[in-house]
Amino acid sequence: MYRQKYIFLLPGLLVLVAVILFPLIFTIRVSFSSWDVYNPGLNNAGGAMYARLWDDSRYWEALWRLSLLSLSTVLIQYVLGFALALLVWRDIAARRFLRVLFLVPMMTTPVVMSVIWRTIFHESLGPLNPILEALGIGAQPWLSQATHAFAAVMIVEIWQWTPFMFLLLLAGLLSLPSEPFLAARVDGAGPVRTFLSVTFPMMGAISVGAILIRAIEASKIMETVYVLTSGGPGTATETVSYYIYIRGMRDFQIGYAAALSLTYLVIMAVALTLIAKALIRLMVREARA
């Protein structure tokens, strides 16, 4: 009887192995080879690719840059997404229209949007600099100076993915029970006090989930960098995903790119686990209290 149970589980397990485990195991195997344009195939290079990675300052710089980029953009997305969700949560005019409008950026293709943003940021032909000049701010070197280019990538990321945060947080707000809010009103709490003592704590678990999902996605940022800046100027906007793309697809260093990817996977898994634990301790425990 018990054996039959395993037979029923087998199709699912096979799919799991084929879809998840096989590519992962194959990538691990490739990372221990020196497969590249002149050494095709799966030879045994031992840990040479990992040793090379250790000395690759461009990779570690890209990792640091990615951390800064993803943490800052996700934080800003969270704040903006929460604000927008609060805005349309209550009965305001054109609430339905605004909900749909806020979701438009998320529903567009990242590559297409990056091309459009690249045109907007274009310093000679784009519309942004003339607007800034008309406002007296002056034209900005959006894509040709390091800090501006980094800011440009942040702007596109925030613009594109704030709606995702908005969507999750709005769903969370709509699912909150009404009793605590009634109690707060009876106790005479104003809007700020209600938000700090009722809304925000009750949104703790949903907030952690939304932040983590976005952090996982943000850690893979590639299209925006590829289209907008190609990692430049210099290496100012080069992220890990883009660097791995260059090594793997452009330079055709398949073995090395596999080692870079796996190392990146481990680092991100550990980092995101620690972030998740910290967030739960900070935000969810408060809610329980």
Binding site: H122, E123, S124, L125, W142, S144, A149, P233
Partner: peptide
């Protein structure tokens, strides 16, 4: 170079 010229791709150079 024109504004943005320090990050011109081939397409930008052609149009410029």
């Amino acid at each position: 170079m024109p504004p943005g010229g320090t990050s011109f791709g081939l397409g930008d150079e052609i149009f410029s």
